[in-house]
Amino acid sequence: MIVPLTHVLILAGILFALGVLCVLVWRSNVIMLLIGIEIMLNAAMLVFVGGARHWGTADGQVFALMIMAMTSAEVSLALALVVHLHRKRDTVNVDALTTGSRPGAPEPSAGPLEEGPEA
């Protein structure tokens, strides 16, 4: 192995913490939130690849490949939802989206929704 496993894990830990930071800071912006999740998943992939190199088995690489496929599925669905919501209402701001989730509550901001492109 070219560098000790510890150093790979430290790099992965830093990346993971940065991903968590991104999720926490940008929790109102869907796009940046997804980017934060991507960073976290990349950190996990790095750990898997490092572990696979350490043990000389390919299991970790297989897992990393599966993470990649899984996350591309998740991102495409998330972006489809964002586009759908954007057509109805002009925002990618999660906080602005929450108003619709309570049918009982008065919704001053839900005006565009009723006349949305349902027809």
């Binding site: 490092g50 490949l65 990649m68 591309s72 972006l79």
Partner: peptide, 23 residues
């Protein structure tokens, strides 16, 4: 460098390529 050339390729093609272009 960690002896995972296939994962490296997919990282470039899928992540840096497809997913980020989708974003």
């Amino acid at each position: 460098l960690l002896a995972a050339p296939l994962i490296a390729m997919f990282e470039v093609i899928i992540y840096a390529g497809a997913v980020m272009v989708l974003f």
